[in-house]
Simulated assay, not measured.
Amino acid sequence: MPENEHGRIIASEAKTVLQPAGFRRKGRSRIWIADRGFWLSVVEFQPSSWSKGTYLNVAVHWLWGSLPQTLTFDRSERVGGFVEFQNSAQFVPLVGQMARKVLEIDQINRSMFPSVQATATILANELQPGAYGEWAAFHAGVAAGLAGDFETAKRLFVSAQRHAASQAQVLLGYIDDPGAFRSYARGTIEDERAYYGLGALPATIAI
């Protein structure tokens, strides 16, 4: 189906601003992704069911296989409100502003999650005692295990709820063998990287 005018503007502005920062468009969708090693930086110019225009969602997707081959928005925020398309002259600069805001947030995320050690600390500290989100304990557990804190990883996997519990149980099977745990977790990361058309995990990423 041919792309509509506001869709073409979003694609053009996103390409101009985001592509130099390592983002690429996911197919013909309004989603753009960038390789950050063991995670993806994800941008969605989300359409509305009622009006022409876009919302902006910016997210982190952990590449350790909570839902293999599903682009989950594991840490997500909606930036601002809906920007309605009225005409090209009005819409172009607004979408450009959105795209430039993405770069600011992406840089913050990159500074927060440069390594699995830093990520493990942040994810564990963000957990609310007795009120974990369904996948929060799982993601924090994987990060803890990759950072070498297997006691914390085990505790978090045991606490994982609902759908996350089955994934956590798989990793619990490796929890007493650090080498096997890292090998399995790295394998899931490499598999997801391959699925999204990325190369091998960079040697600068210690896992």
Rank of each mutant, 00 (worst) to 15 (best):
F91M: 05
N109M: 10
V102I: 09
M112V: 11
L67K: 15
S76M: 13
L71E: 10
A99R: 08
F82P: 03
D106R: 01
S66Y: 13
Q86N: 13
S111F: 04
L94D: 02
Q97Y: 08
W62P: 03
T72H: 02
R78G: 10
A99D: 04
T70E: 10
S88P: 00
I105S: 02
G65V: 06
F85V: 04
H61C: 13
H61F: 03
S76V: 14
D74C: 11
E104L: 11
P93G: 08
A120W: 05
E104Q: 14
R110L: 10
P114I: 01
Q107T: 11
F113Y: 15
P93V: 06
F73L: 14
Q86M: 08
V79W: 06
F91I: 07
D106I: 04
L67D: 08
A118H: 12
V79H: 09
S76G: 03
R75H: 10
P114D: 01
R75C: 04
Q97I: 09
E77F: 06
S88F: 00
F91P: 01
F85L: 02
P68V: 01
Q90K: 08
T121F: 07
S111H: 05
D74H: 10
I108P: 02
H61A: 14
V83R: 11
E84C: 01
W62C: 00
L71N: 11
Q86I: 07
P114T: 02
V79M: 12
G80Q: 07
E84P: 00
G80M: 10
F82R: 03
L67R: 15
L103V: 11
T121Q: 14
V95Y: 04
F85N: 02
V92K: 14
D74S: 08
M112E: 14
V95F: 10
